[in-house]
C-alpha cells in the first residue's frame, strides 16, 4: 500500500469520524444531507459484498466493517434518534436521490468488467459513489451558514477522493497491468464535483472568513 492510498483511507476515516462526532456529541445533524448518507450506505452495502468471500487483509476487512457500520449508524441517527432527528432540515434536503440510483443500475449493467452479480454490484457502487455527494452539495448551497464540522467533513471527503487519484497514478507507474478505466473515470467525475466547494473552502480559509457558498 502506498502513502497516497493510506492517506486517502485515513482522510476518509476522519471524515466519517468528524460527522459522527458532530452527530454524537453535539446531537445535531444540521447541514447534513440524509439523502447523501443513505446513498453512501447503499454504496458500501453493494461494494463490500466480498467481505465474507474474499479475504484481502485484516486492515481491509476492518475498514470495510467501519465504513459499513458508520454509514448505517449515521442514517439511523438522522432518521431515528429522538434528539438528532429534530435538527434534520427536511425542507432543504429535497434532492431526488432515488433518481440517481436507476441510471447507475443501468450503467452498471451496460458497462462493467464482468457480467456477474458481484461485479455488477461493485460497478454500481462505483457509479453511485461518484454522484452520492450531489444532495449534500445542493443542501450546502441552500444553507447560508455552514458550520465548521460540516465544512471539514466535506473537505475531508474531497481530500480522500483526490488522494485516491494520486494513488492510481502511482500504482499505474509502479505496478504491471494496472489499468482500471471504470474505477478511474467514475473516481475522476466524483473528484471534479468537489472542485467548486474546494475553491470556496480555500478562499474562506485564506481570508480567514467563515465558509459561505454563493447563492
Amino acid at each position: 500500500m502506498n502513502i497516497f492510498r493510506l492517506a486517502g483511507d485515513m482522510t476518509h476515516l476522519f471524515s466519517v469520524l468528524v460527522l459522527l462526532l458532530k452527530i454524537h456529541t453535539i446531537k445535531s445533524c444540521a447541514g447534513i444531507s440524509l439523502k447523501t448518507q443513505e446513498l453512501y450506505a447503499l454504496v458500501f452495502a453493494t461494494r463490500y459484498l466480498d467481505i465474507f468471500t474474499d479475504y484481502i487483509s485484516l486492515y481491509n476487512t476492518c475498514m470495510k466493517l467501519i465504513f459499513l457500520g458508520s454509514s448505517f449508524s449515521i442514517v439511523w441517527y438522522i432518521r431515528r434518534h429522538k434528539i438528532v432527528r429534530r435538527s434534520y432540515d427536511k425542507e432543504q434536503d429535497t434532492f431526488r436521490h432515488h433518481f440517481l440510483i436507476l441510471p447507475c443500475i443501468i450503467l452498471a449493467l451496460l458497462i462493467n468488467e464482468k457480467f456477474t452479480v458481484k461485479e455488477v454490484m461493485w460497478t454500481f457502487s462505483l457509479y453511485l459513489e461518484a454522484v452520492a455527494i450531489l444532495p449534500q452539495l445542493v443542501l450546502l448551497q441552500r444553507t447560508r451558514n455552514i458550520d465548521n464540522l460540516t465544512g471539514q467533513y466535506i473537505f475531508l471527503l474531497g481530500a480522500y477522493r483526490s488522494l485516491y487519484i494520486l494513488n492510481w497514478i502511482y500504482r499505474y507507474f509502479t505496478e504491471q497491468h494496472y489499468v482500471h478505466w471504470i474505477t478511474w473515470i467514475s473516481g475522476l467525475v466524483q473528484t471534479l464535483l468537489y472542485a467548486d466547494f474546494f475553491y470556496y473552502y480555500f478562499h474562506s480559509w485564506k481570508n480567514n472568513e467563515k465558509l459561505q457558498l454563493p447563492a
Binding site: R5, D9, I56, S57, M63, E113, W122, E175, T183
Partner: peptide, 10 residues
C-alpha cells in the same frame, strides 16, 4: 490473468 488489484481498495 485478469488483474484484480483495484479490489484491494476501499
Amino acid at each position: 490473468t485478469k488483474d484484480e488489484s483495484t479490489k484491494d481498495e476501499l
